Measured scan of single mutants.
Amino acid sequence: MQIFVKTATGKTITLEVEPSDTIENVKAKIQDKEGIPPDQQRLAFAGKQLEDGRTLSDYNIQKESTLHLALR
């Protein structure tokens, strides 16, 4: 499925993911596309910060959802 990640600079990244993917996997995909190390990424959805060990389906993130990326 496709999801979107909006960066602090307003850029939107499109990612191909599975509901079973962990947040860690998603951060690795962002690193592949943007070169941002996962340990510098903070992802949020619906106002909640997402934890590495959880999956997209844990957070009820569905196709075409938009996550927000902040850098630490």
Rank of each mutant, 00 (worst) to 15 (best):
L43A: 01
A70H: 07
T14Y: 13
R54C: 03
K27E: 01
R54L: 09
G47Y: 05
K29L: 07
D52Q: 07
Q49N: 14
T14L: 15
D52F: 05
T7N: 07
V17T: 04
A46E: 15
Q31G: 10
Q40G: 12
T14C: 04
H68K: 15
S57F: 14
T55I: 12
R54G: 14
M1T: 04
V5R: 00
G53D: 15
A46R: 05
L56K: 00
L67N: 01
V26N: 00
Q49T: 04
T55V: 11
R72W: 07
L67P: 01
K11Q: 12
T14D: 11
T12R: 06
A8V: 07
K63E: 08
R72Y: 09
I23H: 02
I30R: 00
M1P: 02
I61A: 02
D32W: 08
Q49I: 12
L50N: 00
K63V: 09
G35L: 05
T12A: 05
K33Y: 14
Q31Y: 09
I61M: 03
S65D: 12
L56I: 11
A44G: 11
A8I: 15
Y59F: 06
P38T: 15
T7E: 06
P37K: 09
L56G: 00
Q31R: 12
L71H: 13
G35F: 11
T22H: 14
L43Y: 03
I13Q: 02
E34N: 08
R42I: 14
T14P: 10
I30T: 02
E18S: 06
E16N: 12
P19R: 14
I36R: 02
N25G: 09
Q41P: 01
Q62P: 14
Q41Y: 14
A46L: 15
T55Y: 13
E24L: 13
V26K: 00
T66C: 03
I3D: 00
M1V: 09
L50H: 00
G53H: 14
L67V: 13
R72P: 14
D52M: 06
V5K: 00
K63C: 03
V17P: 01
K33M: 15
I61S: 01
Q40E: 12
P19I: 10
F4Y: 14
A28C: 04
Q49A: 12
H68A: 05
F4N: 05
Q40K: 09
L71G: 10
F4L: 08
L56Y: 01
D52L: 06
K27D: 00
P38G: 06
T66H: 14
L43M: 04
K11V: 12
T66N: 09
L69Q: 03
T9Y: 07
D52H: 08
T55L: 08
L50F: 02
E18P: 10
G35V: 03
D58M: 09
S65R: 03
E34T: 09
V17L: 11
V26I: 13
G53C: 04
I36M: 12
K63N: 06
T9N: 15
F45T: 03
T55W: 05
S57I: 06
R54V: 12
R42M: 13
M1F: 09
P19H: 14
T7S: 11
Q49V: 13
Q40D: 15
I23T: 09
H68Y: 10
I36D: 03
S20I: 12
V17Q: 02
L69W: 02
A28R: 11
Q62S: 15
L15F: 07
Q41L: 07
R42K: 08
Q40L: 07
